[in-house]
């Protein structure tokens, strides 16, 4: 089953458009949403949450149209910023938000409040960016959501909390009904924990694959420039050449290069490699 489904969604915005997006976010897994800045990640997330409306196509959450407000009982969200009154404290926010969720869990709230080391009575305007992010996260998790959607949650976090966040997400995934969808342009966040990857560039879906497939089929080939003829070049998704040699992204069977074993280096491609070469192509 898919927790989120976008079918042929198009959206025209000022100087920018999303073209025919079809995305599936399977239940029970972590799906990473990657792409360069300005590729349409936030817009897509805002459309899923019914903040923006698609011009064409349909968006489904838990198999229902995403405009049904009650669906949000099961969703925890974190946006790139904390859209909250800056004069509010966490205490006031809680007074406002807690009664709205049927599944609100005070114990869980206090646990995270303590874990994230957040002040209960300090005004949000005195919070650092990292604290605001933690505050978003606190309210996203305290009602035990089935689906957690996040827009660049690791931006502005220090490396330590970043790692703690990743650990936390993995802990949440022990519950098999849980689904996580999060966007990031820092792909190292996803290398270890993502099950599926959706890659968007310039408003279009470039790739949608399971992480297992990516790890199996994408390789980085490094070799001497003189080896690189037209035939070989056509095998690659992208090539970068320097005076010292070439680095290329290969999708498919790396055993093709077994005969050159002594002349090339074959490595597993990271998401960053894939994003880089797919965005840039060959130079």
């Amino acid at each position: 089953m898919n927790t989120v489904e976008l079918n042929h969604v198009s959206k025209e915005l000022k100087g920018f458009s999303l073209k025919d997006l079809s995305i599936k976010v399977p239940q029970g897994y972590i799906t990473g949403f990657i792409g360069p800045n300005g590729s349409g990640k936030s817009t897509t997330i805002h459309m899923i949450m019914d903040i923006l409306k698609p011009d064409q196509g349909e968006i489904k959450l838990f198999d229902s149209p995403n405009t049904e407000a009650q669906l949000k009982q099961k969703i925890g969200f974190v946006y790139d910023e904390l859209y909250m009154y800056e004069n509010f404290t966490i205490k006031k926010m809680k007074a406002f938000i807690a009664p709205l969720y049927d599944g609100w869990d005070d114990q869980l709230f206090n646990k995270y409040l303590h874990e994230f080391d957040l002040p209960f009575r300090k005004k949000l305007k005195h919070f650092s960016k990292g604290m605001k992010m933690k505050c978003s996260l606190l309210f996203a998790l305290a009602h035990n959501p089935e689906f957690i959607i996040m827009d660049e949650p690791t931006a502005g976090l220090d490396p330590i909390f970043r790692r703690e966040l990743i650990d936390l997400l993995q802990e949440l995934m022990v519950d098999e009904k849980r689904t996580i969808f999060f966007s990031t342009h820092t792909t190292t966040d996803l290398d270890h924990i993502a099950d599926y990857i959706v890659f968007i560039n310039k408003g279009e879906i470039v790739m949608q694959k399971s992480m297992a497939d990516i790890q199996e089929y994408f390789h980085i080939i490094k070799g001497r420039s003189d080896m690189l003829d037209q035939d070989m070049r056509s095998l690659f998704l992208g090539v970068r050449e320097t005076a010292q040699g070439f680095t290329a992204l290969l999708e498919g069977d790396s055993s093709l290069f077994d005969e050159f074993k002594n002349d090339v280096i074959i490595e597993k491609a990271t998401l960053e490699d894939i994003m880089y070469f797919k965005t840039k192509g060959s130079n």
Binding site: H46, D50, I51, A69, K72, L100, Y101
Partner: peptide, 10 residues
């Protein structure tokens, strides 16, 4: 704020 409020179950 409305971005936040619309994302709540209201």
């Amino acid at each position: 704020i409305n971005c936040y409020v619309i994302s709540l179950p209201i």
